[in-house]
Amino acid sequence: MAVVSISPYKLPAKDALENFHGNQLVYLHWEDHLMFCAPVAFPLPSGMVFDDLVQNVLGPAYQQHPDFSNITWSDVKWTLDGKPFDPDPQASLADNGVGHKSLLSFVTPGLQGIGNKHF
């Protein structure tokens, strides 16, 4: 449905890829760990290798949670934009299909937050 307006109404998207100085936006979400109240957002180069994202972006974001050091990374289940996802750790974000404003969620089996309270 078009906007109800008095004249033609067409304005550019404020968060278009080209506005991020060569980066794209990626959102991360660790399910069952609501100590971090919302998914977190990062501007990243699309050539960044997935493993680099895990080590140098996801790690610093979440490592203050006591569950973090207990994660078995081979068991982690990933979801990309709502679909099950099997990342190639050595491929880039672009080659893994992680696009601008993609949401990357992960579940860590056996770890459900402090006292299993999803926190």
Binding site: H29, D32, L34, C37, A38, V40, P60, A61, Q64, S105
Partner: peptide, 27 residues
Amino acid sequence: NSLPQLCNVCQIPMVFTEPDDPTKLCL
């Protein structure tokens, strides 16, 4: 220490949970 993802309409961080499950974020 990380900035939150925001809702594109209300602009609140995406902190609200599923209507029928308060342990899962509503995304």
